[in-house]
């Protein structure tokens, strides 16, 4: 693959992807190209939303940026360093709940500190602070199964924040929530984002969510996922989702997405027809 040996980016960029591609099970009969040729620059403190049809490789890209999976093509940098392994600087919040069911809420939140051997007192203090920021300080001593789905995702956010990450990777964290809860969670996320100063990479396939949150919306093609367009949104927050500008954006993004979803469906049908 053609690859520019001198990438044009500054070491201050939070995330830089150059020619990133991922083929699952590469080299086998089941090889499956999920991502192709992704070039992306994300500034510190920027809020970027990934929008794309289901199965286009959005989660895959987050995993690559987190360092949990290896790209088969291209390279990713974060603040000047090549991403090779996971790092506490880049926290990932998963699509499904991923709290440790055997730990209490505060122990979950301070898991990363426990790994570094912090004292119990210190861990509790950090957990209390992080939980305060997500409004769940009172639930410190509960267990995850005693919380609602929205609370659990907030605990997951607190756990990620407790690591003081410079990049927060969020994989459809609010997908399982109802509309009202989701709106509250979005407001809350914007508060947290402003306080923390971290860059946020947020995956969703809800256009409204993208419009409410993003500085820039990265629209992906259907699989193999490539960047179709990047739509900047220059509106002040909190945004009125019924304003004319937002309506125009909504129409633009819907059009962009519709073609890709149609293509993704056609492909999946063709695949199941041959299988």
């Amino acid at each position: 693959m053609a690859f520019d040996p001198a990438p044009h980016f500054s070491s201050r960029d939070a995330v830089v992807c150059r020619g990133v591609g991922k083929t699952w099970a590469a080299g086998t009969k089941r090889a499956h190209e999920a991502l192709r040729d992704v070039d992306l620059d994300i500034a510190p403190g920027e809020f970027v939303v990934f929008l794309g049809p289901s199965g286009c490789g959005k989660s895959t890209l987050l995993y690559l940026i987190a360092g949990l999976e290896e790209a088969t093509e291209g390279l990713t940098w974060s603040f000047g360093d090549v991403v090779e392994t996971p790092s506490p600087e880049r926290s990932l919040i998963f699509q499904e709940t991923s709290l440790f069911p055997w730990l209490t809420v505060w122990q979950n939140v301070s898991f990363g500190l426990a790994i570094r051997g912090a004292s119990q007192q210190q861990r509790r203090a950090v957990a209390a602070e992080a939980l305060q920021r997500v409004g769940l300080k009172a639930a410190m001593d509960k267990r995850p199964d005693e919380l609602s789905g929205g609370m659990r995702q907030r605990v997951a956010v607190a756990r990620a924040l407790a690591m003081r990450p410079k990049v927060l990777l969020m994989d459809e964290p609010f997908a399982a929530l109802d509309v009202q809860t989701r709106a509250r969670m979005q407001d809350f996320l914007l508060d947290v984002w402003r306080d923390s100063g971290a860059s946020v990479l947020f995956v969703t396939h809800h256009i409204d969510e993208a419009v409410a949150l993003a500085d820039r919306v990265v629209v992906f093609t259907s699989r193999p996922g490539r960047i179709k367009t990047i739509v900047p949104i220059d509106l002040p927050r909190p945004r009125n989702l019924f304003s004319r500008e937002v309506e125009a954006l909504r129409i633009q993004l819907t059009d962009l997405l519709r073609d890709e979803v149609d293509r993704a469906f056609a492909e999946q049908e063709a695949l199941s027809a041959t299988a």
Binding site: A66, L68, P86, S87, L92, F94, S98, F100, F111, I115
Partner: peptide
């Protein structure tokens, strides 16, 4: 669940810690 293991990995857990704590 691979998610639980991945959470520990992103927090910088070593292999031993992943086995012991997760």
């Amino acid at each position: 669940s691979p998610n639980l293991i991945n959470v520990a990995r992103t927090m910088g857990a070593s292999k031993r810690q992943i086995y012991g704590r997760v």
